[in-house]
Amino acid sequence: MQTLAVYNIKGGVGKTATAVNLAYLAARQGFPTLIWDLDPQGAASFYFRVKPKVKGGGKKLLLGRADLDSRIKATDFEGLDILPADFSYRHLDLVLENTKEPVRQLGKVLAPLRDTYDFLFLDCAPSISLVSESVFRAADILLVPTIPTPLSLRTLLQLLKSLKEVKAKRLGVYPFFCMVDRRKALHRKTADLVEEIPLPFLRTEIPYSSAVEQMGIHRAPVHVFARTSPAAEAYEALWREIRRWMRLGKGYFTRP
């Protein structure tokens, strides 16, 4: 099983849209896939029409006291399951703090899923915390959707700095641009600033697209209702590119 965390310190940058659409594509290729909606706001659960509720709450789950499998729900799509959000996920930090090895706890909880899924997507809440640190340790790949503005690039640099501090040597970090609007001068210019980032971006960009916005109305991945939209095609290209890097066993690692 490969664990892909979709993460950014900032909110509203397209993390959930990315996790939902990529997980859908992975499952559509026939790989049993799970998406864990770690954000208490439950956007991913909403897109899949699943109640943002987990029996017994997040604490039991994270402490390994609840049977993970029985909390998982099938989405409407073959091979794609979801572990829904729960309002109690707001306090996951506190739960982790009281464990013996806080940053390893998440990995331990995820271990039994290895034989059930090929891909696990973690749709993370924004913020930098003990939870995100655990995610860095548990994941194989960190997908970082980034809006092309100078401010976002600074946030990305911050993230890379903090990644150096946590021991996540084997984590492949894959930033990519999303919500790109080529008509905006700012977006065009920022793309030139990329030089300053010490690791390359994925080549694929996700354009700003009304189809993605409509996911909230259709409550479905973008491919379900706008198969030929530029955004749908971009997500497919993104998934192909990620898969290629994964197959080669090479990522853009935090340390060269």
Partner: peptide, 16 residues
């Protein structure tokens, strides 16, 4: 499409 039913609680699917 391949469908493998029986060994897992829910059938597995694969496109080839």
């Amino acid at each position: 499409a391949l469908i493998l039913a029986g060994p897992t609680p829910h059938p597995l699917h694969l496109r080839m």
